[in-house]
Design a protein around this nucleic acid. Sequence first.
DNA 1: ACTCACATGTAAAGAGTTACATGATTTT
DNA 2: AAAATCATGTAACTCTTTACATGTGAGT
Lengths: 176, 176
Amino acid sequence: MDVKQLCLGVLTSGEATGYDVKRYFEENFEHFFRAGYGSIYPALNNLLERGLVTCTEQCQDRLPDKKIYKITELGRSEFESALLAAKPQHKLRSHFLVLMHFSHLIPAQHTADLIEEHIMQLEATLAFLHQKSQALSGDATPGMKFAIQYGEQLTMHAREFVENEGERLISELVAA
Amino acid sequence: MDVKQLCLGVLTSGEATGYDVKRYFEENFEHFFRAGYGSIYPALNNLLERGLVTCTEQCQDRLPDKKIYKITELGRSEFESALLAAKPQHKLRSHFLVLMHFSHLIPAQHTADLIEEHIMQLEATLAFLHQKSQALSGDATPGMKFAIQYGEQLTMHAREFVENEGERLISELVAA
DNA sequence: ACTCACATGTAAAGAGTTACATGATTTT
DNA sequence: AAAATCATGTAACTCTTTACATGTGAGT
């Protein structure tokens, strides 16, 4: 499951430009898989070379040409194989927790600031996912709902933990 | 916050060999930051070159020589600066959620298997963190406890979510 | 005047993972 | 007899991030 395959996956729900694919990533995968233009555009060209997608160039009045990508039958079966072969990895990479682990080496105020910043980030994510979750339309599949609600619930619990235990942590650091 | 800096951080709590550093990663950072020998050994050599650690070679009877690394004053201040400069990123990368998002493209049974596998992984992590959390000794700092308990709590909530909503997801997929 | 949305890409650098390579000792 | 623990490292590969490079149109 790399960016190439994810782009293919995005294209299973319809034609899209590289720009559209990026937006799809942002709107649906933001909390568990991110990709920038620097990996999406090369990925689409790679899929094109391998015949997994086709590309139609559409000239636009004053804007640059659009390249509209469409998945082929080969691409669709390739994606389905990839789904069946993929291992369900699930990994957190948190500098925030690294910093908390070493919080005895920094001023307590700095730790407090980091915690507050982290809570604000969690709240932003939560606001986004909550709105997504509320706006789930009929064409969202059960799996898509599951992925969004997973993010929503877990982010909620993370905020709760960090709010409660964060305060305790600060007071213990100040006391010491 | 890369592997080099984390190695430096590990060495703030005492001398260690590359092997020891790896073990420290496994026992303390497993749920939020992982590193293999392939990044740890080169990292330690880099720190040595930059004078942030010193190295004492200790011959052993029948085993290969040990290289015992120790942080220098320069290393210590470098690490503290790194802690102050680090951004508290916190990112999940989940192929599991990708697979759930696209679960309408695979057999319901496969989704069920993936969910079960994920639950088992969560339970393994939970068992590990729970034991860690229970065994927290007096020399664990409040920050270290925070990082472990964060993992424990969030993994617990994740398991709860996946157990409940996973079953609902499967039944919705089967119905469709 | 500035920023956001639209639109596409490349190149270089940085980071991490995996496989390879070696070998003794202890435990199962 | 096999696997786990101790112990170090390299090389190739994969992957991602960041910066660069360019430009219009609409809204504030």
